[in-house]
Computed example of a mutant assay.
Amino acid sequence: MPTVAPIDLDDHCLCVAFVGDAPVFALASGLVVRLDHGTHRHELHDGLLAAVTTLDGSSLVTGGEDGKVMRLDADGTETVLRPAARKWVGAVAAGPQGAIAFAEGRTATVLMADGKQRAFEEARTIEGLAFAPKGLRIAMARYNGVSLAFVNGAAPAVDLEWKGAHTQVTFSPDGRFLVTAMQENALHGWKLDGKPGDQRHMRMTGYPAKIKSLSWSAKGKWLASSGAPSAIVWPFASKDGPMGKPPLELGQRADTMVTAVACHPVEDLVAIGFGDGMVLAVRIADSKEALLRRPGKGPVTALAWNKPGRLLAFGTQAGDCGVVDIAG
């Protein structure tokens, strides 16, 4: 039977993660709380907007309304990657070879591990950032599509156009697909490995609400998403991804919406957070459900598994946070 260790942080939790082995909770105020043999509080920003873990899980990178970009290491060390500035940092991303990217307005900046920097300018505000899983290539989501650029190359960025506002962007783990969340309650995807002339667009529509949470399954066969009364899980195993195939609908509830999803790091299993604070785990193969947390205060806004997949951290809009041990 799963056991829950609660922590009440009394503020909107934007992001949860495991840094090293310790759960961390990043709050909208700019406070990051780290649970590591006690409760450690790190005042990183005057207003937090974005947070992401590095690929090796050793650090949390954050951006805020104060224009700062910060890194919090597993031992509690705080590093200023970019000091306070005039523009808000609305998106951050972590990539291969220790690369970090952040977006402020129409500019994205990539910071390399060796201290080199590269800036990319767009005509419209950059809303989302993602690194390709291999090679230093960055995707920048904006109005009317995504720009794809090689960090170390001189070639101009490739434009993937689709009308509308694109607010998040993610690569599939194998790098074959790129998917964005849109302002208009839909996902849009591009097939990146097709031959010239192939149908490269994928439209994933029909959501009743905005999609705020996306998560790839361990091997990249599935993409789970929020924005409906169940977790909408799209199939990506075939060469054409979800084109012509219906999604799975997991954890269906009649009276509340799915607000956060997190796929298990090993098994084909999805943790699903709801608008009333409930958290379920659902197996993709047979839709079998396990209750991880009963309803609480506020919608679930963030979910994250630790690397072995035994612990699940959760955060809510009301700061009603905690860690679930699924083995009890």
Rank of each mutant, 00 (worst) to 15 (best):
I7C: 09
D8S: 13
D8F: 08
D11P: 00
H12L: 13
A17H: 01
G20D: 11
D21T: 15
V24W: 00
V24E: 00
L27R: 02
A28S: 14
G30I: 06
V32K: 00
D36R: 14
R41H: 12
R41L: 07
H42G: 08
L44M: 14
L44D: 06
G47K: 04
L49A: 07
L49H: 03
A51F: 02
G57P: 10
S59N: 07
T62P: 07
V69E: 04
V69N: 02
M70L: 12
M70S: 09
R71T: 08
R71P: 01
D73R: 12
D75T: 11
G76H: 01
G76W: 01
E78T: 12
R82V: 11
A84I: 08
A84N: 11
R86W: 11
R86L: 14
K87Q: 13
W88E: 12
V89A: 10
A94W: 00
G95H: 00
Q97T: 03
A99G: 05
A99C: 12
I100T: 09
I100W: 01
I100R: 05
A103I: 04
A103Y: 03
A108G: 04
V110H: 01
L111V: 08
G115A: 07
G115S: 09
R118E: 03
R118N: 03
E121P: 01
E121D: 15
R124P: 12
T125N: 13
E127D: 13
A132K: 09
R137W: 07
A141I: 08
Y143H: 15
Y143W: 10
L148D: 04
V151F: 08
G153W: 06
A154N: 10
E161P: 03
A165N: 11
D174N: 15
R176K: 13
F177Q: 02
L178I: 14
T180I: 05
Q183N: 11
Q183S: 13
N185F: 09
N185D: 11
A186F: 03
A186G: 02
A186N: 05
H188S: 05
D193Q: 12
G194M: 08
G194C: 05
K195C: 05
R200Q: 15
H201M: 11
M202P: 11
R203F: 12
T205F: 10
T205S: 14
T205I: 08
Y207L: 02
I211F: 09
S217I: 02
S217W: 09
A218M: 07
W222C: 05
A224I: 04
G227M: 06
A228N: 05
P229F: 02
P229N: 13
P242I: 02
G244T: 10
P246A: 13
A254E: 15
D255C: 06
T256I: 04
T256K: 10
A260P: 08
C263L: 07
C263R: 01
L269I: 06
F274T: 02
F274G: 05
G275T: 06
D276Q: 12
G277H: 02
M278P: 01
L280R: 14
R283W: 09
I284C: 07
A285S: 14
K288T: 15
K288M: 11
K288G: 13
A290Y: 03
L292P: 00
R293Q: 10
R294T: 11
P299C: 09
L303R: 01
P308A: 12
T316K: 00
T316W: 00
T316Y: 00
T316V: 03
Q317K: 09
C321G: 04
A327Y: 06
A327E: 14
